[in-house]
Amino acid sequence: MNRYRAAPRSLRQVFAVPLALFLVSLFGLIAALVGNGMWDAAGWIALSLPVAAIIRARRRS
């Protein structure tokens, strides 16, 4: 079970996924604001990733 692995993760490992989700969410929030059509769709996809991360974590545990 890797969650009992002794080696602690580095800050970079801890924040890799959260930082990616942060940047993607910000992109989504702004994309839907600056344009219509494709930009709105890009915003929806980007902002659905944090929701998808929650669903995925719940299904895996």
Binding site: R3, P8, R9, V14, F15, V17, A53, R56, R60, S61
Partner: peptide
């Protein structure tokens, strides 16, 4: 909360939910 996330997650992968 973001700062405290680091010490809590040092031993766990992203998305770990010990249900």
């Amino acid at each position: 909360g973001v700062v405290l996330y680091a010490p809590f997650m040092r031993k766990h992968d992203f998305g770990t939910l010990r249900r």
